[in-house]
């Protein structure tokens, strides 16, 4: 009995600590949501309840433009990350060889390079040196092209690791069976490999999407006039006046993220992942 009570004390204090940390993590988010309903011109001051800011959100053209830009960039850059990262992840897991070490070194380098270094590098590359990419031949991307390219670098590296981890955990017997049954490599890929790694691709894609929605630094250095994103708009306002409409926009984005996150967790659960595996996938590899 004495022994049991001691276990409880440790568990209890650990649990209390975890609860404090959770409050710490949620406190600011709670404040943002609450202040999006504040009837005051300054974000930091509470001024009574109102839902006006949600209506005014759609009147502010600049805010609307930057949110649209953000979603466009995320929509273009996350498929790039998923396709490139997915292919590389499959290659790393199934076709290892002398090339693996060098490639992993580059991935590691991408992960450990501070974002600001990437950002200035891309700026010099795009603006100063020029290169073949200054006048993008991809018409629908135009001024968003450099930002899209910049956002996909880090997230494709993360997707690569997620997919590799997923493939490494899968027996290749299924793929061999497909080959034995005379499936062409292409068919085996689309009918066996792709469905197997689909949850990883989905999680990776969502991760890439939120990375892109979040990004300030790369956007700041690769952006051109008219390509300002929502985080850049917000960052520009930090030094001047922060109004509750930013909180309203953030609350809506938070809701969208939650829905997306919930559906990914649902898909991962359906495919039989444990919570630990889900954690590994959602936080980028492992």
């Amino acid at each position: 009995m004495v022994r049991r009570r001691r276990i409880d004390t440790i568990s209890l204090s650990l649990g209390a600590w975890a609860a404090i940390v959770l409050v710490f993590l949620y406190l600011p988010i709670l404040f943002i949501v609450v202040h999006s309903f504040s009837d005051s011109n300054a974000l930091t001051r509470w001024g009574g309840f109102t839902t006006d800011w949600y209506g005014k959100l759609f009147e502010n053209q600049q805010l609307k433009d930057t949110i649209t830009n953000s979603f466009k960039v995320a929509l273009y850059s996350s498929p790039i990350s998923v396709v490139f990262g997915g292919l590389a992840g499959v290659a790393l897991a199934r076709r290892p060889g002398s090339w693996t070490k060098g490639f992993l070194a580059v991935i590691f380098l991408i992960l450990v390079t501070p974002e600001i270094v990437d950002a200035i590098g891309l700026q010099v590359w795009f603006v100063e040196v020029g290169g073949p990419f200054v006048q993008p031949s991809v018409p629908f991307m135009r001024s968003l092209f450099p930002i899209v390219v910049g956002h996909a670098i880090f997230s494709s590296a993360v997707v690569t690791l997620i997919v590799r981890a997923r493939m490494a955990g899968l027996d290749d017997a299924l793929e061999e069976a497909a080959a034995d049954l005379y499936a062409t490599p292409r068919r085996a890929f689309f009918q066996i490999t792709l469905p197997l790694i689909f949850p990883a691709l989905l999680a990776g894609g969502l991760l890439a999407f939120t990375f892109s929605l979040d990004n300030v630094v790369i956007s700041q250095f690769t952006g051109r006039p008219g390509s300002s994103t929502f985080p850049l708009y917000v960052f520009g306002k930090v030094r001047s006046v922060l109004r509750p409409d930013l909180a309203a926009a953030s609350t809506l984005i938070l809701l969208a993220t939650l829905v997306a996150l919930g559906s990914v967790v649902f898909v991962l659960r359906r495919s039989g992942d444990s919570s630990s595996e889900i954690a590994a996938t959602l936080t980028g590899g492992g």
Binding site: P28, A247, I278
Partner: peptide, 22 residues
């Protein structure tokens, strides 16, 4: 775990600005 992941997936800049309110 889900409860821990949500703040991590919330917009980085926004949750930093939120501390200005707090």
């Amino acid at each position: 775990l889900g409860v821990l992941i949500i703040p991590f997936w919330t917009n980085f800049l926004i949750r930093t600005i939120a501390w200005r309110i707090v």
